[in-house]
Design a protein around this nucleic acid. Structure first.
Length: 471
RNA sequence: GGCCCCAUCGUCUAGAGGCCCAGGACACGGCCCUCUCAAGGCUGAAACACGGGUUCGAAUCCCGUUGGGGCCA
C-alpha cells in the first residue's frame, strides 16, 4: 500500500465554497474513492487578512452537503497552514543550508524598477540574481534555480507542458518578514502530507514549474499533476458574483438536490459517452482524471436545474419528505407528518426543478388560498359556478370512500348529467381549492386534502361568488 | 507586455484519420397525449473559429492567424 493514492483539496477560506472549487474538490474526491485512496482537506489560511473562521465553517458545511467526505483534515489539528509555520521554516532552513536557497536584500523599489524595465523591453521579468552569491545572512529567501534548460510538467490532463528556465526566476520562498509564500507552503504541505496526485485548477499551471524546481531542490519525488479547467460565466469570463449565484450554498438554499449538483459538476468537462444521469456510485466507478477535458466550461444553471428535476422525479416521496420539510418551514408554512408529506410530495415532484419551487407549486396543500386568480375567477367563479360547487359539495359529502377514484366517479357522473366537459368542473374545482389554474391531478389533490378541507374550500369559493353578487 | 493553456450546435459534450454532408443532452419551436400544469412520446431548427499544409482521405495530425482564459501582479 506504499503507493496508495493520496489527494487533497486545499481551499483558501476567503469566501464561500465557489462552484469551480467544488468541482476541483469533487474530482479529487472521485479520484480518491475510485482508487480507494485518501482524500485530504487542507485549509490554506496563510493570508490571515482575508481568512476567517466563518469561511472555514462555510466551506466545511458545503463539502458535507455535497457528500464529499474527507479522510484527513479539520477538525483534526495540523491541516491548516497557520499551524504549520514550523514545518515551512525547517524546510527553508534545509534549502539554505544546502545552498539551494539564498538571502536577498534587494529593495522593493529596485525590483519594481527592474520589472518595469523588463516590461518596456517586452521581456519576462526575472530577478537579476544580484544576491545569488553574496552569502547574505538575512533578507528574503530565494530559491536558486538552474539558469538553463527547461522544466516540463507532465500533466495528466494536458500532457507535457514545457517551461524554459530563461522565463523563470529565483522566486521568493520566505519573505523578509519571515512569512512563507504561497508556492512554498503548497510544496512543503504536499510533500509532508505525502500527496501522490495534485489535482487543482488550471490557474496553477503556470506556478507548477517553480514548484517542481522546489521539489527537486528539496530532494523529494514529484507527485502526479493534473490541472483542470476553470468554470466561466455566460460571457466566458471567469465565473464571479456578477454572473449570479456562484457559491455552493446558494444552490443548496435554492433547493437544488446535492446529488444533482454533484452530477452537474462532474459533467462539466467530463463525459462518459452519452450518459447524462450519474449516481454517486456511477461516478466513483467511471470517473478518470485522464478523461477530463482541457477547455474551460460555461456554468449553465438551466441544465443544473434540469438535472435537479431529474433527481427529484426519481426520489420516492418518503425520501424526499425530510428534505422538503425545511423548505416548507422557510416559506412560512406548516408541514404535516412525514407520511402525509411524502404523499403530497409525490404529486409535486415532477412539477418542480428545485425544493423551493416544489413548495411554491404545492403551497395550497399547506395553506388555504388567500385569493383566487382574477382572470380564472371571472370565468369560473360565477353564479353558475356557484351552483356547480354546491352540487359537487353535496355529492362529495355523500361519498362513502374518500379516494381519488371515487372522487373522479362523482365528477364523471356530474359531467354527464350537466352535459359539460370534465375540464369545466375540474378547473372550477382547481381554482376554488388551490386558488390557481395549475396543480397536480385534481382528484388526487382532493383526496390528499381530505373531505373536510375540500368542502370548506368549496364553500369559501361559493361564499366569494355570493359576496360578489351582492356587491 | 512576456510566458502558459484552450478552441465541435446558444450551452455541456461524443468524436482519439475513413463508421461524421458530425451523435447525445439542456434550452428553443411544432405535433401527440391530457381535467390544468407538468411529465412522457414523436419531431424541427442549430456547430467542426479562420487560413495554410500533411494525407488517397482531416472535426481528428502540423504551422500560422484570430478569439478566449490563466500566471507574472
Amino acid at each position: 500500500m506504499a503507493d496508495a493514492v493520496r489527494v487533497r483539496f486545499a481551499p483558501s477560506p476567503t469566501g464561500h465554497l465557489h462552484v469551480g472549487s467544488a468541482r476541483t474538490a469533487l474530482f479529487n474526491w472521485l479520484y480518491a474513492r475510485h482508487h480507494r485512496g485518501s482524500f485530504i482537506l487542507r485549509i490554506e489560511d496563510t493570508d490571515r487578512s482575508r481568512s476567517t473562521e466563518e469561511n472555514i465553517g462555510s466551506i466545511v458545511e458545503a463539502l458535507e452537503w455535497l457528500g464529499l467526505d474527507w479522510d484527513e483534515g479539520p477538525p483534526a489539528a495540523g491541516y491548516r497552514q497557520t499551524e504549520r509555520f514550523d514545518i515551512y521554516r525547517a524546510h527553508a532552513a534545509r534549502l539554505l543550508a544546502a545552498g539551494r536557497a539564498y538571502y536577498c536584500d534587494c529593495p522593493r523599489e529596485q525590483l519594481e524598477r527592474e520589472r518595469q524595465a523588463a516590461q518596456a523591453r517586452k521581456e519576462t521579468f526575472r530577478y537579476s540574481g544580484r544576491c545569488r552569491d553574496r552569502g547574505l545572512a538575512a533578507g528574503a529567501l530565494r530559491l536558486r534555480i538552474p539558469q538553463e534548460g527547461a522544466t516540463v510538467v507532465d500533466d495528466l490532463v494536458h500532457g507535457p507542458v514545457t517551461f524554459e528556465h530563461a522565463q523563470l526566476d529565483d522566486w521568493i520562498l520566505v519573505r523578509t518578514d519571515g512569512t512563507p509564500t504561497y508556492n512554498f507552503c503548497v510544496v512543503v504541505d504536499d510533500v509532508t502530507m505525502r500527496i501522490t496526485h495534485v489535482i487543482r485548477g488550471d490557474d496553477h499551471l503556470s506556478n507548477t514549474p517553480k514548484q517542481i524546481l522546489c521539489y527537486e531542490a528539496l530532494g523529494y519525488p514529484l507527485p502526479e499533476m493534473a490541472h483542470v479547467s476553470m468554470i466561466l460565466g455566460a460571457d466566458r469570463s471567469r465565473l464571479s458574483k456578477r454572473h449570479g449565484a456562484t457559491s455552493v450554498q446558494a444552490f443548496r438554499d435554492r433547493g437544488i438536490l446535492p446529488d444533482a449538483m454533484v452530477n452537474y459538476l462532474a459533467r462539466l468537462g467530463w463525459a462518459h459517452g452519452d450518459q447524462e444521469i450519474f449516481t454517486r456510485a456511477d461516478l466513483v466507478e467511471l470517473f478518470d482524471i485522464k478523461d477530463v477535458a482541457t477547455s474551460a466550461a460555461v456554468f449553465d444553471e438551466t441544465k443544473l436545474e434540469w438535472l435537479s428535476h431529474e433527481f427529484l422525479k426519481r426520489l420516492p416521496g418518503e425520501a424526499l419528505a425530510p428534505l422538503v420539510r425545511p423548505f416548507v418551514g422557510a416559506a412560512g408554512l406548516a408541514a404535516p407528518d412525514d407520511g402525509r408529506l411524502a404523499r403530497i410530495v409525490d404529486t409535486l415532484k415532477e412539477r418542480a426543478k428545485t425544493l423551493v419551487e416544489l413548495v411554491q407549486v404545492g403551497r395550497f396543500y399547506f395553506a388555504r388560498p388567500a385569493s383566487w386568480e382574477p382572470a380564472a375567477a371571472r370565468t369560473y367563479l360565477t353564479p353558475e359556478g356557484a351552483v356547480r360547487v354546491v352540487l359537487l359539495a353535496e355529492r362529495l359529502g355523500a361519498l362513502a370512500a374518500w379516494d381519488a377514484a371515487a372522487i373522479e366517479g362523482v365528477y364523471r357522473a356530474l359531467t354527464a348529467e350537466l352535459g359539460v366537459k370534465l375540464v369545466e368542473l375540474a378547473q372550477l374545482t382547481r381554482l376554488a381549492v388551490t386558488g390557481g389554474t395549475a396543480s397536480p391531478p385534481i382528484f388526487e389533490v382532493l383526496a390528499l386534502l381530505g373531505r373536510d378541507e375540500t368542502l370548506a374550500r368549496l364553500q369559501a369559493a361559493r361564499a366569494r361568488v355570493l359576496a360578489e353578487g351582492a356587491a
